[in-house]
């Protein structure tokens, strides 16, 4: 199963590298939203809860773009039939799509977080990084698990572009709460927040629950 998933993932990454469709769009989107926040809030520098809120909301909205493009190639070019005809475990397909989304999000954050620090963040980013990186990774994991599920769930609907954000955003609300709360003291310049363990715990609980659910129900999607 891992081998199949790796093959599908390689195919997805090859397509992404050649077409450069999702990740550049997501990156451009985040930078644009940072500029929007600058004008919308009329602030030159953000810190604390405002900063972590702006950062996480932007990342989640960018993730919506990634999620709605996740099955796009297959849908538009009919590749999905090939994938479904092949004797491939559906779970492998989910794993590949989740891994692709995870990697896209990591690449996005490599650009978006420094851009955020450059454009909007008041306090210095560097001392916050040792804690911020695990928080980002845990959030990416949850987003990837739920994003791949939502993408497959919406793939067969008529109003696909509409369903993805409506479905994904409420589902990631606990993720937003825990990630933003974990990040908030870091962006205020407090490097050893006391509640961090609690929020990381909730974030990991969310990851585990949604990975399990996605694995359990994905088999019922996309088969015909």
């Amino acid at each position: 199963m891992i081998r199949t998933a790796a093959t599908i993932l390689r195919k997805d990454l090859a397509i992404e590298l050649r077409t450069k469709e999702s990740v550049p769009a997501m990156t451009l989107f985040t930078v644009t939203v940072f500029v929007l926040f600058h004008f919308g809030l009329d602030r030159d520098a953000l810190e604390g809860s405002l900063a972590s809120g702006a950062l996480w909301v932007t990342l989640l909205l960018a993730a919506v773009i990634g999620v709605s493009r996740l099955f796009a190639v297959e849908r538009e070019q009919g590749g999905i039939d090939g994938l479904l005809l092949a004797p491939v475990d559906r779970t492998a397909l989910w794993l590949a799509k989740a891994a692709a989304l995870f990697l896209y999000l990591c690449v996005l954050e490599l650009v978006a977080v420094p851009a955020f620090a450059l454009f909007l963040l008041g306090p210095d980013l560097l001392p916050a990084l040792p804690i911020l990186i695990p928080v980002l990774l845990a959030a990416n994991l949850g987003l990837a698990a739920i994003g791949a599920l939502v993408s497959a769930l919406a793939a067969e609907t008529r109003a696909h572009e509409l369903i993805v954000p409506l479905l994904l955003l409420p589902l990631v609300m606990p993720l937003l709460i825990s990630a933003a709360s974990a990040t908030e003291p870091l962006l205020r310049g407090d490097q050893s927040p006391e509640d961090l363990g609690r929020w990381l715990g909730l974030l990991s609980l969310y990851d585990v629950v949604f990975v399990l659910i996605a694995v359990a129900v994905f088999d019922f999607l996309l088969d015909d």
């Binding site: 599920l149 709460i177 825990s178 909730l202 969310y206 659910i213 996605a214 019922f220 999607l221």
Partner: peptide, 25 residues
């Protein structure tokens, strides 16, 4: 029926976890 069921299961599991998250926040 299948897709709606998948949604219903994922959302049903989401209910308790969401309550935990918001209550903590």
């Amino acid at each position: 029926a299948r897709y709606s069921s998948v949604f219903a299961i994922a959302a049903g599991a989401f209910v308790p976890i969401n309550f935990a998250a918001v209550r903590m926040a």
